[in-house]
Design a protein around this nucleic acid. Structure first.
Lengths: 107, 107
DNA sequence: GGTCTGTTTTACTATTTTACCAATAAGGCA
DNA sequence: TGCCTTATTGGTAAAATAGTAAAACAGACC
């Protein structure tokens, strides 16, 4: 593994890592509905606005979302559509695990 | 966001998080070539075997890989093919950033 | 049983991430 | 200008993660 290869993996891992938090994933899914302001995102995910803002900056840094100002509001939108394709795929795996958990709980 | 929704996002984020480490991503890409033993993986990624073992357990826990014993060796293989599709997609984004970095270095 | 090989687990330290709260922008409007 | 709304940044404590080395484990083979 040469330096270029290491850097490639590091950048790539950064994208996955950015998506690897429930709140950030929730934001990404919400943004599928279209451009949203921070205030709408806060309302949807239900946590401190400062917390949301920081998570948004993580997503922005890796290029998953981008923002623009609209008056007082900052509008965020997705810039990596393929992220959603994969998210859908993972969904299948996750649903299985959720069902398994429910079976255990019911039993 | 109800409890089920939260749990769904948590599990889903776990998959991304597992892929969000350069070493683990390197392992995943290596396993595209087919089933490999821990010793081969160690040689490929170039770090302590105990470290590789721990990363493998993370990947296994989330269902990205699975293992089987073959004599003394533990063989690992991918179980989430779609992970690769997304990885390829992210690749495009990453390559752009890498190129940008190189431009800066050259300039 | 004893020993070798291949792998996992444990114990430890250093670093990173996270959530919360307070403080600080930055734009709109009286 | 002053004040309101919206969002970001800084600080801090708690929790999670990563890497290393040593110990433990599991199967193969004598």
């Amino acid at each position: 593994m040469n330096p270029y290869e290491n850097e490639r993996l590091r950048l790539k891992a950064e994208v996955f890592k950015a998506m690897g938090h429930p709140l950030r994933l929730g934001i990404i899914e919400f943004l599928q509905l279209g451009e949203k302001c921070v205030c709408e995102i806060v309302e949807h995910v239900g946590t401190e606005i400062s917390n949301v803002s920081k998570h948004l900056s993580v997503l922005k840094k890796t290029g998953i979302v981008t923002d623009r100002r609209d008056g007082l509001k900052m509008m965020y939108r997705l810039t990596m559509p393929c992220a959603l394709d994969f998210a859908r795929c993972v969904e299948g795996v996750v649903i299985k695990r959720l069902d398994a958990q429910r079976s255990v709980m019911v039993a």
